[in-house]
Structures are given as C-alpha cells and as structure tokens.
Design a protein around this nucleic acid. Structure first.
Lengths: 192, 192
DNA sequence: GAGGACATGTAACGGGTTACATGATTTG
DNA sequence: CAAATCATGTAACCCGTTACATGTCCTC
C-alpha cells in the first residue's frame, strides 16, 4: 500500500515542468496544456500540498507591470522523487473520445450533420497543429540561444520528443477526418 | 441549465452500443473498451438509472451453460435521445498520457531505462493493433454474412470508421516510438 | 471605464478507479 | 479442486470540472 506514488500523476507532471525551470502556478497551468488536461483549480491546491511535502518551495515575486506571483522551485527531494518516477513504465493512455460514439452511431444522423461533425473535428485539429508548430519553433529558438548548457539541451530534447509526438498524433487525426469524409461520399479503400 | 444531456457521456455510449444490438451489462463492459475506458462498476448502476428514465428496458435471460444475464434493449425514447445527441459537435478528446511527462523529463533517467520506457509502450501498441485488426475482421465477416439488411450495413459502417480511427492512431503511436528510439541513439531528422 | 490578460484561490458536484463481495459454470 | 471466464452488484475514495470569488495592471 505505501506506494512509490507520492501524490498523483498531475503532481509528477508539475515536478516535471519545474525540473526544467521554476514557474508560477499560472505559468504551470498554461505550460502543462500540451501534455495533460488540467485546470488551475486542480493545480493551485496541489502546489500547496507538494510544498508541505517538501518537494517544492515558493518565493513571492513582485512585478511592476503585472500582479505579483509565486514562483515555485523544485527541491532536491522533489528531483529524487521525479527521478524514481520517470523510470516506472507509463500507464497506457485512457481512450476517451466522444467522437468514437458519434462515429459508431453515425447512421442515425443526416448526411449533412455527419459531415459537419467530421469537419469540425478536422478544423480543431488543424488549429492545434499550428499551435504545436509554434511551440516547436520556440523550443528551437531557445535551443539555439543557449546551445552550450548541457542540461538545457537535455530539457529541450524532451520538449522536442513530446511535441513531435503531439504533432504526429494530430496529423493522424486530420488524416482520419479527411479519409472519413471521403468515405461518406463514396464507398472506398481503407487507409492502412 | 435544463440540458440536452440526460445522464452523461457514458450513458450515450451505452445507448450507442444498444442501438446496434441488445446486450447484457457484461457484454457492454467488454464491447465499450475500444471506444471509451469504463469499468463495470460504472456501467451496472448507470443501466439502472437509464432504465428508470425509460431509455432502455431489460429482460432476464437464463442460460444453461453460463450464469443468467440481463439483456438490455434500447427504447424508442432512448433512440430519440441518441439521435439528438449524435449531431451535437463532439468535445475534443482530453490529452492525458503519462508518457508525455516521462518524455519531457527523460534526461533524468538512465539511457537504458529511457529505451525500456519507449519499447514497453511500443509493445503495448502492437498488441492493441492486433486486437483491432481482429475486431475489424469480425466486423467484415458480419457484414458479408448478412449483407442485405440496410440497417445492419449502416452499423457495420460505423464500426468500420471507428476501428479505422483506432488503427491509424495506434500505428502512429508505434511509428512515434520507433522514431524516438532512433533519436535516443543518434541526433537526427524529425518525422514530419 | 470596459474588456482582456495576468494572477490566485475555494467549493460543490459529478465522474472514475479500486476494492469489496458474491456466485455459477467450465476446463484442466 | 483450482483457476478462468461469465455475470452482477456496492462502497469508499480520489480525481476533475464548473462555478464562485477576488484582485491587479494595461490597452483601447
């Protein structure tokens, strides 16, 4: 029962981001988006708990142009926990996409509505793809900027792997939507 | 506030499966797996609620070779609800994959462990892919068996779309793992 | 001065996982 | 007779979403 897991998966996610650079709760909420869906109402209370456990510390930073913020920094203890966790095999992702049900019972809807459903998803994926490409470009700029520091290079590599994953996945979603839209009009080949 | 949503997403998922054929709670638990992650402890109580709402009915079926079961059937009211729901645009899927964090902080782990992490995921995806191909073959057999009935053809098409989606996605995951493993050994090209 | 981005929090509710609990039937 | 599959249910706890709540600072 007394597990390796200290708090929960999200807490390790926060440690992961903090292991690359110190960030505020607000910045964590923004930066975690491509990795994991989580709202600020989950993150702020979790940061308090993690600080009580000694995995992070915070420092209030006053800003002239914006409201004050709390910058969280990972501790040695937090880094140790994270190091142990990263080597444990990852759980398979939970399949949970509403579109699956809607595809399955697509025969119940009018052809125009079926088409709209797939187009909407395709457009969403296309905007996501753009965002990921921007993040990737940012990451490369950072990499070029201080290409000497060995550790920074390493975290840049992690971001590169992750963004590559998301880009490949999103491109596949777009390919699927395009193919499925074709299927709705003809009766044709399969994509594999 | 008085929404279109009657119970929750899972309940529409169950209606979706029941709109293709009547099934027991146990069978629903098995069949929903490629579409949505849900355990039997979510499904059994939900079926009771949905029956109270008049969307499904059940009939006890005695079996000689196996324990008795309750076969659930969708009602006209349930079909109406489902028809309304399928045309509402699908929510984007929630990104929630532990591997994202582990990739991001891969630099913290030993190279051998990093490799193991990706290999494990790759193997999982390969076994998933096999399962989907089997389901697809099953679906085609069903299709060939009674190729006359128009409605059955329609539900077969839905399953075909869905399985194609899962197959494309799983193949992409495998491609990613293969590519990432290569990256760990060299410093090379990106896959897009 | 209205709206938007930045910034941090709390509370209620519903969804989802794990564990507890039981029992029939078949196969090795 | 032990293990696996089929079959159905309940309960406790944790996780996640939505809504409530407040406030700064900048730009139009």
């Amino acid at each position: 029962m007394e597990g390796i897991r200290v708090v929960n998966t999200l807490s390790y996610g926060l440690l992961t981001l903090l292991s690359a650079s110190s960030l505020s709760g607000y910045e964590l909420t923004q930066n975690i988006k491509p990795l994991w869906r989580a709202g600020h109402s989950q993150i702020y209370p979790l940061l308090v708990t993690m600080e009580q456990l000694g995995y992070i510390t915070h420092e209030r930073v006053e800003q002239a142009d914006k409201p004050d913020k709390k910058i969280y920094t990972i501790t040695g203890q937090g880094l140790d926990q994270l190091r142990q966790w990263v080597e444990i095999p990852a759980e398979p992702p939970a399949v949970r996409d509403e579109l699956h049900f809607k595809l399955y019972s697509l025969w119940l809807s009018k052809p125009a509505e079926a088409k709209a459903l797939l187009l909407k998803r395709k457009e969403f994926c296309q905007s996501e793809l753009e965002r990921y490409h921007l993040l990737l470009a940012n990451n490369e700029a950072l990499c070029a900027e201080r290409g000497e520091a060995r550790e920074l290079e390493a975290t840049t590599f992690g971001r590169y792997l992750l963004l590559s994953k998301r880009i490949m996945e999103t491109e596949t979603s777009i390919r699927f939507c395009t193919w499925a839209l074709e299927q709705l009009e003809s009766g044709a080949e399969r994509p594999f």
